[in-house]
Amino acid sequence: MQAKFPGKALPYLFLLPTIVICGLFIYYPAAQTFRTSTYQSLFFGARQRFVGLQNFGRLFLSPEYLRAMAVTIWFAFLVVVIGLCLSFALATLLNRKLQAARALRISLIWPYALSPAVAGTIWLFLFNPHSGLVNRLIDIVAGIKPDWFSNGKLALTMLIVTAIWNNLGYNLVFFLAGLQNIPESFMEAAKVDGASFWEELWYIVIPLMSPTTFFLLVININYAFFDTVGMVDVMTRGGPANATNLLIYQLYKDGFQNFNSGLAAAQSLILFLFVVALTLVQFRTTGRMVHYGG
């Protein structure tokens, strides 16, 4: 049965709030960002001069910016891949009939309730080279106390661990929900056919979980690219020697510390286009493998 609106204007009237809100908070700022990116400016336009594409030229010719791009891609890749694998594994374990499963679930989902800045602060203490828990354990096991803040690779590792931990809860919730939606009959049928745990996983669980996984993939990439700025600011401020200078942090520095909003707007556009392109590629490739059932 299909309901019909009386009159042509009514549907648009219903859409109006969404259009107004999207226009005010998404399209208008986006247009402004585009405009600002073509200006050399001080304090969001307290003073400005049209420079065309100069800001983009500055960025693509800057070795620091290109390096930040490489660091970000590597960081995002590791955070997404390790984060998803780990949370999937944990979700499969948690989905079994365990004692204290509820308590375990809650404690694993908990980190998501913390903002990236708070997560950063917690891990900052844990990774403290002299008094942190991490080095205490490493010292007992291996007899060394690595300096997580002076070595670029270690600092990036530390940031990746924190980023994965912080988003683990979110991924877990979705994976768990997905797992619990797999019809019991499929699993019973598999058991009757004598499938092992790994076979069940490979032929039933993973295909049925593909929509969830795909959704989480897109969300996690966005998380790694955009939500980690607070973490970086608290933990490393992009250092040492820019080893953890993510694109979003460079944007923050240029926009809010150097009062260079034109350059920051250009970076914001680059980031935006980058993530859009990445998402489109995923829909074309990984997206085709997703099985939505029905």
Binding site: G152, G239, P240, A241, N242, K253, Q257, N258, F259, N260
Partner: peptide, 20 residues
């Protein structure tokens, strides 16, 4: 200096490069 923080960052990075 107008964008003083940028100058500070650049010099800090210079010393980090020296450490590297």
């Amino acid at each position: 200096i107008g964008r003083f923080q940028e100058v500070r960052t650049i010099l800090e990075e210079a010393f980090e490069k020296v450490m590297g």
